[in-house]
Amino acid sequence: MLPALAALSACSGVQSALDPAGEEATQVATLFWVMTVGGGVIWAGTVALALYASRWKRHAATEQGAGRLIFWGGVVFPVVVLTALLSYALWLMPSLRPFGGEATQGLRIEIVGNQFWWHVVYRRDGAEVVSANEVRLPVGQRVEFALESADMIHSFWIPALGGKMDLIPGRTNRLSLLATKAGVYRGQCAEFCGISHALMAFPVVVSEPAEFDAWLEARTRPAIGLDGSPAAARLFVDRGCGDCHRVDGTEARGTAGPDLSHVGSRLTIGAGLLPNDDETLARFIAHPASLKAGSRMPAYLDLPAAELAEIAAWLKGLQ
């Protein structure tokens, strides 16, 4: 009973290909069920036949009868079934990779994989919004992704929305997704890329187009909390944070780490690692590698607690 429950509960949730919320994922899920049920039926038939032959059949088959069984059951049947399955999968392929060029003129999202975080750039009508470690999409609109890598091979996968696609250094791979259900999902790096590969995830927020447009429009301007604490903003730059992180509207213009322009509004910090609040932000700043092994951000253990709290609170305010 318990294993059955566990198996069933894995079929739903924010990161399940069996609980699709996108057009591509629906096709992949259908393909999965067709293959699974088909394979199950063939397996059951084969086992039944083996049981019949070994337990209940009284007489040996004639040589001609056995030959006929092998020909129909072992040659014709597999060829027909495999041809049908191959054709079905190939027939799905063009719709799983829909790149008209014209059809996806709208929103384009560039993703650059880094150990162990995601650089995200939204482009639409000439506007550019830089973000990181979170992907937001409008429901019902096809979005094209351009996938690149800054260091090694990663793989971009939002199981609830569609299939995965590798990010390969020196190449731009393309992926097209159409979300059909609003909600919050989870994406995950699906190609082993180093010690914190499993912690390289990201929340995916699918919202109504109007809501998404408002969100994107707000991201073209500096964060509202930017002037909340000039002292903290000063500290952020003085302590060297700005050498690696960019915060729109300040002197912090680094690009080695994730863009933090609106970091306070993200659902998680550390690329899907922890919920985003003052406390987790402070913990991450103080000692990133203890939360995420292999993180290239240096520890700030000598930062006075008051300064740490101030910077964390300011970052959380960047909405």
């Binding site: 041809t83 054709s87 190939l90 392929m93 063009p94 990779r97 393309r174």
Partner: peptide, 10 residues
């Protein structure tokens, strides 16, 4: 078979 179904280069 793929040549029968695919309609363009990626």
């Amino acid at each position: 078979l793929p040549a029968l179904f695919l309609t363009g280069c990626l």
